[in-house]
Design a protein around this nucleic acid. Sequence first.
DNA 1: CAGTATGCTGACTAAGCGTTCAGTCAGGAG
DNA 2: CTCCTGACTGAACGCTTAGTCAGCATACTG
Lengths: 231, 231
Amino acid sequence: MVAQPDRREEANAERGGVERIRDAAIELFGQHGVNGTSLKAIAERAGVSPALIIHHYGSKDGLRVACDQYVADTLLALKTDAVRQGPRLDPVMLTSQIAEFRPLMRYLAKTLVDGSPHVNDLIDKMVEHAEQYIEEGVAAGLVKPSANPRARVVVLFLFAMGSLVLHEHFKRLLGVDLIDGDEPPVAYLQAVLEIYCEGVLTPGTYQNVRSYLDQLEEQSDPKGGSDDERD
Amino acid sequence: MVAQPDRREEANAERGGVERIRDAAIELFGQHGVNGTSLKAIAERAGVSPALIIHHYGSKDGLRVACDQYVADTLLALKTDAVRQGPRLDPVMLTSQIAEFRPLMRYLAKTLVDGSPHVNDLIDKMVEHAEQYIEEGVAAGLVKPSANPRARVVVLFLFAMGSLVLHEHFKRLLGVDLIDGDEPPVAYLQAVLEIYCEGVLTPGTYQNVRSYLDQLEEQSDPKGGSDDERD
DNA sequence: CAGTATGCTGACTAAGCGTTCAGTCAGGAG
DNA sequence: CTCCTGACTGAACGCTTAGTCAGCATACTG
């Protein structure tokens, strides 16, 4: 019913109602999306009244912005720490291993799709980190150089984020859980490693598709109805 | 204001109100998500009354299911056709090139995240197709063999789908538009091609990460796939 | 022509939403 | 003690939502 007056026993875990509300929101937003979560549900999970949420955050959108900001700040700090630890195959996977940050990853995965300015900033900064990080890898001889480093970093990074966003499908199709799994998603990691190390296409195919792409680049003409006439 | 009695003049473009409603729904669902779209908005776009939607589809969820079904059927038929046309780097990109199917791709990208049974079936079938398709590629010497073909196909396919889902970020970070672009997303395709042909990591790194992965696999059950068995 | 089904609508309802507000309560300051 | 402040609540508000219903208009059928 009402918030228990004796909240000191849980005070060590989460202090004020403000943060408890934010944590509840992150969890529910990450599960059902912002639009699919009502203030009432958040209030119930946080053990407060809906009015208190407005009291603290002004509006539902204010709460969402606060969540964005918090998630962005926290993950960015975590990422900065992770960089110091040394080379890693896929930083995203690393962070998802840490149970404490799973709600944040779920929130990020949901928010990535409907776009928030703060999360976009977070993504931009993460890509920037990755760019620098990969560059160091190239210099150290761990990573092959690329004809277009920026594009490759963006693709690699968004591949990883896309995997996170589609983690439910990985669970269904491959039986690995990229966010909630208690053990590392071995099958996923092995496949990614194989792709990133050995490649997928044979040299012959490379020439084939490469020439097609060069042809595309040449006719960078937006006009021309080449809808289905060219295969 | 009211629906014009003379609807024969538009009948060739879109016939009945039933399909006009479905098309409007697919477009709006794809833009703002199912939860973020009201029946009123769909009705307005279709030029009908909200009551008619209920009349035809029973409920909002009924409409959503009908949209799922339609998108799944249409894209599956398209994909089956595409397979006949011959080898392709990334079938998803092909379909997104065709302007007529862009709303369907947008719908798919949105629905992929919040999960619908019909769309899941669609994905499963697409993966099945891809598995077979890649296998033929291996037999023809176009694609390198894999230690775990199933896992590699799932990863490759979901990488492509993830790119579609995160197309807004590709637009922001790389300036290429995977869904709405009038010209092929050259930078994206080149980067993907480079990754899939040449790989990313150097052989030395491969040994390094590989041993780490083997170590991971030892910790869990070395029985075939990586099932979730213990927390 | 009457009868009847069907596409379709405006007016309506109940429920749920985010938000407002008056006011309670605990605790610190004077 | 009184006064004030800030966390907090229950009840209400205005609005939007999905969904209902009686009935109109048109089109086919006999």
